[in-house]
Amino acid sequence: MENKVDQKLSVQQIILTLQQYWAAQGCMVMQAYDTEKGAGTMSPYTFLRAIGPEPWNAAYVEPSRRPADGRYGENPNRLYQHHQFQVLMKPAPENIQDLYLNSLRELGIDPLEHDIRFVEDNWENPSMGCAGVGWEVWLDGMEITQFTYFQIVGGQEMDPVASEVTYGLERLSSYIQNVNSVFDLEWSDGVLYGDIFKEPEFEHSQYSFEESDQDMLLRHFDDFEKEAKANLAKGLVHPAYDYILKCSHTFNLLDARGAVSVTERAGYLSRIRNMARTVAKTFIDERAKRGFPLMKDDAKRQELLATWEKKQAKKAAKNAKGAK
């Protein structure tokens, strides 16, 4: 077999290959979600869809913004915005590790020609009320993928458990193309990563570290939080979630600017966490009201709905009692 690594897949080909591959494994190829976020996990296609009993299989590229990691485009490996290729499968297929390894083969990475290891790395995102168990995957000593069995999302215990595979596209591409700086990656024929992203990296770094209007950001955080809560109260999960994402990104901008004092920091994070918990609960309720339509096993669906309705009735009774 010829070694595909020698052909140096472009970033674009790497994305297309992964999309094609995971589509063939039953994943829906989704598009990047259009609200700023720090990681592919925060897309509603992962955060919300991981919650609840309905099956969900999706794959997508997610541009992920981390203002504090910006380096003005000067550091070869650190970026204000990097790209993740995200795969979420619920319930986690039994052979998910093999599926993942086969995706590497598709990219021309033959495990027999490399050293691939699963090294323990348990993942946590306290501000979104998330925790999972899994590994980072090492390719010849380089971490190229985060592999996680979600245990808790938005404070909700997973049932069934979703598996998340997150490829760091820049890392993986740097390996495949054998370059030392992400800016030297070839995105597509003749166009380099640096040609596209160096300028935004510089500008966003300058903005995040030096120029952002702190008063405006602080004001926006409060406004976004208010809007999120108002929507949550009306059961409008997705608009609420958009505003939670906006809160999170606004906080990250404030944090990068050094505008959040040490004591305030915990306060902001707990405000985000509380909303994340509420939206997770509300999401399940709204899906239940729709009858968990994605569930294939009808008997199980009816059973879950019955349990949910009983719980609702109990809650209603309790509220009525409280009102007296």
Partner: peptide, 27 residues
């Protein structure tokens, strides 16, 4: 010195990859 989970075939790839990662860290 490091230890691969595998045999000696294509060890050059493994060595080159690990050297690259270490170099990035040391840089």
């Amino acid at each position: 010195v490091s230890v691969r989970n595998g045999n000696a075939e294509h060890l050059d790839n493994v060595i080159a990859g690990n050297e690259k990662v270490l170099t990035a860290r040391l840089e």
